[in-house]
Structures are given as structure tokens and as C-alpha cells.
Design a protein around this nucleic acid. Structure first.
Length: 250
DNA sequence: AATGCTCTCAACCGCACTCAT
DNA sequence: AATGAGTGCGGTTGAGAGCAT
């Protein structure tokens, strides 16, 4: 019913909600999010709890600007795997898929645009009629009909069936496909391979988790590093089961 | 100082996948 | 094998901060 939906909170998390979530995750582990959302009394979906935890409250998270090494690693891994953000994130300790995704959209688009201007400030006119590399130069481009829009994949969610909309989209900026095309060009010329070890050993550069302020409230988190996956493991299944049954039985 | 624009990032949504039943 | 719940992933959005004019 509508009543149920009204009970669900959305939007930014409050500090109090964070504290509550951290407390219950410490208690029950970072799984069974629906369960956690219920027992914690948080008026959030399990999904929302998970996201908040993964992207913001997780103790292993690193914050601040991407280092040049990370930047290059992202480029390299994206060249390898495409938009597999979570996969890429596993190779960058302390970084989340969301963070990398955001980073890619902002920084890479900017770089691609800068590069386009630098390389061919005037060539966009000739480029724009080529099949694969559509220009977004907002100043001078006259957009030819974009036949390739039919080949859109993830970006095409069904709304861009009209040419005018496609053009509007082009004027606004790159789709991620387009960003990637440009970046591919960019990498060909400027990218040097990242040292193998950097990737294979799960991150040679230092990662100094900067705990979110919320950890002041819960300093005794039950975390340990998993050697193989380099992930923070919460608590054991048996611990979880004990706690859950204890909680449920009172 | 005011206004508009751009950038950043947290959060949401929908779909796909996994696993238990 | 079918099904449903839970979870993960990728794409998108919107609010707020910062910057330029």
C-alpha cells in the first residue's frame, strides 16, 4: 500500500542513521541487508543500507583525490574491462565502484574534451561526419545526422529515438561510449603501461584508509583483511548466526 | 555582491545474477 | 526445473559547493 512506501526514507543519510547502521553491521555483518534494515529500525531499504555502507561507511574506504597511479590504473583497467566498475574497484584498494564511475565521468570526459580541442580545434567539422567518432565541440560543430545512435548500447534506454534528441545529447556532452572512444585515442598516444606488479599484487601503492567520522562512534569494528581478496571481512558466519538467533529470541 | 554555470559526489533506479526452497 | 528473495552492478539524477563573469 501507499502507507508502506511512505515509511521508507530516501535522500541523504543523517549522522544518526549512519551510527545506527554501523552499529548493526558490526553486530550482524555486512550481508542480509533486508534483515539489517528491519532490525535496526532504519526506515531505509536494505539496498539503501548496503549502498551507504559500501560507498561511505566501510572502514577500508580511502577518500580524497585519486593519485596519478590510481588514475592510470583506472585507465588501463578500463581499457581492459570496459565499464566493469566493480571489477576495476577491486584493483584499487579503498576505492568504490561508485567513486571510480564518478571519477571516470568527470575527469575523463574533461580530458577527452581538452584533448580534442588541443589536437584538432578545427578538425571537428570533418570528424563529425565520420562514423565512429562523433564530436561534441560545442562551439563550432554542425551536427550531421548521427546514424550510429542505433548502435548505442547501455546508454540507449529507449528515450533517444529521435534525431533531435540525439543531437541534444551530443551537445550536452559525451555519452560514455563516446568518452571511451576518445579515451582510447588518448591512451594510444599518451598511456604508458602500468607496472604489472601494481595490478597483480592488489595494489602496490599505499592505501591509508581514512575512516569516516562515524568510526569515532564504533572504534572496535570487527574487521580483518582477507589475504586473497584484499577485502575487509566482517565476522564469521557462525558469529553472525549466533547473533541473529540471539537477537531474534531475545 | 549577485548571478549563472560547472563540477563533484551521494544516492536512487532498474536489471541481472545467485542461491535457497 | 521453477520460482522468489536477496544482492550486486551499471547508469542516471539531483543537490550543493566552487568558480567565473
Amino acid at each position: 500500500m501507499v502507507q508502506d512506501q511512505e515509511m521508507i526514507r530516501k535522500g541523504p543519510w543523517t549522522e544518526h542513521e549512519d551510527v545506527q547502521l554501523v552499529f548493526y553491521v558490526n553486530l550482524f555483518g555486512d550481508r542480509r541487508w533486508d534483515f539489517i534494515s528491519k532490525v535496526s529500525g532504519l526506515k531505509r531499504t536494505g539496498k539503501s543500507c548496503r549502498l551507504r555502507w559500501v560507498n561511505y561507511l566501510h572502514p577500508g574506504l580511502k577518500r580524497g583525490k585519486m593519485t596519478p597511479q590510481e588514475e592510470r590504473l583506472v585507465l588501463e583497467l578500463h581499457a581492459k574491462w570496459g565499464n566493469r566498475w566493480s571489477r576495476i574497484a577491486r584493483k584499487l584498494p579503498g576505492r568504490t565502484d561508485n567513486e571510480i564511475k564518478n571519477y571516470w565521468r568527470t575527469h575523463m570526459r574533461k580530458k577527452a574534451q581538452e584533448r580534442k580541442r588541443a589536437i584538432s580545434p578545427s578538425s571537428s567539422l570533418s570528424n563529425c561526419s565520420s562514423s565512429s567518432s562523433s564530436s561534441n565541440n560545442p562551439t563550432t560543430v554542425h551536427l550531421e545526422p548521427v546514424t550510429e545512435t542505433k548502435e548505442r548500447t547501455f546508454y540507449d534506454t529507449g528515450g533517444l529515438d529521435k534525431q533531435s534528441e540525439a543531437e541534444e545529447e551530443m551537445e550536452k556532452g559525451y555519452s560514455m561510449d563516446e568518452i571511451w572512444k576518445d579515451i582510447t585515442l588518448f591512451e594510444d598516444e599518451t598511456m604508458k603501461p602500468v607496472k604489472d606488479g601494481l595490478i597483480e599484487d592488489g595494489g602496490s601503492f599505499t592505501c591509508q584508509p581514512l575512516a569516516s567520522p562515524i568510526w569515532d562512534y564504533c572504534p572496535d569494528a570487527l574487521w580483518m583483511m582477507d589475504d586473497e581478496s584484499k577485502k575487509f571481512l566482517p565476522i564469521t558466519d557462525s558469529f553472525y548466526n549466533e547473533q541473529e538467533s540471539a537477537f531474534l529470541t531475545g
